[in-house]
Simulated scan of single mutants.
Amino acid sequence: MEFKKLTSTEPFDVATYVKMYYELYKGHELRLYLGCDSQNKLNTTYATTLVFNVAATGCHVIYRKEVVPLISDMWTRLWGEAERSVDTALYLREHGIEIDTIDLDYNVDPKYKSNKVVTAAVGYVESLGFKARIKPDLLPAAYAADHIVG
């Protein structure tokens, strides 16, 4: 599964990169955040991100961006975000890297449209052994994806 750095257009295998990053920061407190966001314009664009946080030193972001034909149905588009996050987490798991939590860019508050996906997406994520975080929690990977997808 190919990802890129924000500072380069050269793709690389995400599992290989994560293992290298863990080795580089061995002995440090390292947290990994995974999430996805999407946006509709002429097409639908998805950005899946992994955010590395090393203690209090800041964050490093890698991403995968996909452009697909326009998905006008909101539920289907938002479900695609959960699927891409889970696909990435499962790919990493297959390569010996365990993701604890997936950031889902959906809101627990029913006044937001994304709330319609919360129950199904959280159930899907948790049925595979991952924890799901949703708004109003702080979601570093979803926020990073939001900036990349735009």
Score class of each variant (00 low, 15 high):
residue 109 D to W: 02
residue 54 V to D: 05
residue 114 S to C: 07
residue 30 L to M: 13
residue 59 C to H: 02
residue 54 V to G: 05
residue 48 T to Y: 04
residue 115 N to I: 02
residue 108 V to M: 10
residue 51 V to P: 03
residue 50 L to V: 12
residue 42 L to I: 03
residue 71 I to E: 07
residue 84 R to L: 12
residue 43 N to T: 13
residue 73 D to S: 07
residue 115 N to H: 15
residue 104 L to Y: 10
residue 92 L to W: 08
residue 82 A to W: 08
residue 78 L to D: 04
residue 71 I to M: 04
residue 50 L to Y: 07
residue 97 I to E: 03
residue 97 I to D: 01
residue 52 F to M: 10
residue 70 L to V: 08
residue 110 P to C: 05
residue 102 I to N: 06
residue 38 S to G: 07
residue 28 H to D: 06
residue 30 L to F: 04
residue 66 E to K: 09
residue 54 V to Y: 12
residue 99 I to D: 01
residue 87 D to Q: 14
residue 59 C to N: 09
residue 39 Q to Y: 09
residue 93 R to Y: 12
residue 70 L to T: 09
residue 90 L to M: 14
residue 109 D to R: 11
residue 52 F to D: 04
residue 53 N to V: 12
residue 84 R to Q: 05
residue 92 L to N: 02
residue 94 E to D: 15
residue 58 G to Y: 06
residue 58 G to F: 10
residue 105 D to F: 09
residue 105 D to M: 03
residue 62 I to H: 02
residue 44 T to D: 06
residue 95 H to G: 06
residue 29 E to I: 10
residue 111 K to W: 03
residue 44 T to C: 03
residue 45 T to A: 12
residue 57 T to D: 09
residue 77 R to C: 04
residue 68 V to D: 02
residue 33 Y to H: 15
residue 101 T to K: 13
residue 115 N to V: 04
residue 85 S to G: 15
residue 49 T to F: 02
residue 101 T to G: 01
residue 64 R to I: 00
residue 53 N to H: 09
residue 26 K to C: 04
residue 26 K to V: 03
residue 114 S to Y: 10
residue 98 E to V: 14
residue 82 A to D: 02
residue 96 G to T: 08
residue 91 Y to C: 07
residue 64 R to S: 11
residue 26 K to F: 07
residue 93 R to F: 08
residue 43 N to I: 11
residue 31 R to C: 04
residue 105 D to G: 09
residue 108 V to F: 06
residue 90 L to K: 11
residue 102 I to H: 04
residue 44 T to N: 02
residue 90 L to C: 11
residue 110 P to A: 14
residue 49 T to A: 14
residue 71 I to P: 00
residue 68 V to I: 10
residue 43 N to H: 14
residue 31 R to Y: 13
residue 27 G to P: 02
residue 36 C to H: 01
residue 34 L to K: 04
residue 78 L to Q: 10
residue 89 A to K: 08
residue 86 V to R: 05
residue 100 D to Q: 12
residue 37 D to P: 06
residue 75 W to F: 15
residue 111 K to G: 07
residue 39 Q to D: 00
residue 62 I to E: 00
residue 66 E to F: 07
residue 96 G to Y: 05
residue 79 W to D: 08
residue 55 A to K: 13
residue 115 N to F: 14
residue 100 D to W: 09
residue 66 E to D: 15
residue 94 E to G: 07
residue 53 N to C: 13
residue 52 F to G: 01
residue 105 D to L: 06
residue 88 T to G: 03
residue 78 L to H: 10
residue 88 T to R: 00
residue 84 R to P: 01
residue 112 Y to M: 11
residue 93 R to W: 08
residue 36 C to V: 07
residue 83 E to W: 06
residue 84 R to Y: 11
residue 87 D to I: 03
residue 44 T to Y: 07
residue 76 T to A: 13
residue 94 E to V: 01
residue 91 Y to N: 10
residue 46 Y to W: 09
residue 79 W to T: 03
residue 34 L to C: 05
residue 106 Y to A: 15
residue 53 N to S: 14
residue 61 V to M: 02
residue 89 A to Y: 07
